[in-house]
Nucleic acid binder design. Structure first.
Length: 154
DNA sequence: GCCAACGTTGGC
DNA sequence: GCCAACGTTGGC
């Protein structure tokens, strides 16, 4: 099993919405590196749900992959912001996975707190200028972040 | 709202 | 295939 991080602006789609709907198609990824990661995901892989471009950015919860990548339906919807007129149905350019809610982190781990943790030095998320919205989380980093969550419960 | 970082586009 | 211009992301 592999671990991932998925970013979303909570104004667009939040962890609360994923909790309420149980599952949701993770659409709208329009970057080739991010898309390639989506295509590597397996059923049961877990991911950190990250809230970006908001008052307190950070990791807010955990989800899992409920279905492997398939054609992102929005690329064929002319009315969608994510419409891609160059994508062909015979060979779709963009992919989406089905995500399922697992749990909130309690408490969430803010970007500020992540940056303050020496063990996380070198984690892609914290790299200067990182804009990728989908990437892998190494197992040791995953475990470190879960330990941080536990430590903050005391 | 600013701006650094960086991916993408398109002219050549 | 190079690379300048442009657009987007995302923290602050």
């Amino acid at each position: 099993m592999r671990y991932w991080l998925l970013k979303s602006e909570p104004d667009e789609f939040s962890i609360e919405q994923l909790r309420d709907r149980h599952t949701e198609e993770w659409t709208g990824v329009r970057n080739y590196m991010a898309r390639n990661f989506l295509r590597e995901m397996h059923m049961g892989d877990q991911f950190f749900f990250y809230h970006s471009s908001c008052a307190v950015p950070g990791i807010v919860g955990i989800g899992e992959i409920a279905r492997v990548a398939a054609a992102d339906p929005l690329q064929f919807e002319p009315a969608s912001d994510y419409y891609d007129p160059k994508s062909k149905r015979e060979q779709p350019r963009w992919s989406s996975v089905l995500t399922r809610y697992v749990r909130h982190l309690q408490p969430g781990i803010t970007l500020e707190a992540l940056r303050a943790e020496p063990a996380l030095e070198g984690f892609v998320l914290l790299n200067r200028g990182n804009r990728l919205s989908v990437f892998e989380v190494p197992r040791n980093i995953w475990n470190t972040i879960l330990k941080l969550e536990k430590a903050k419960q005391r």
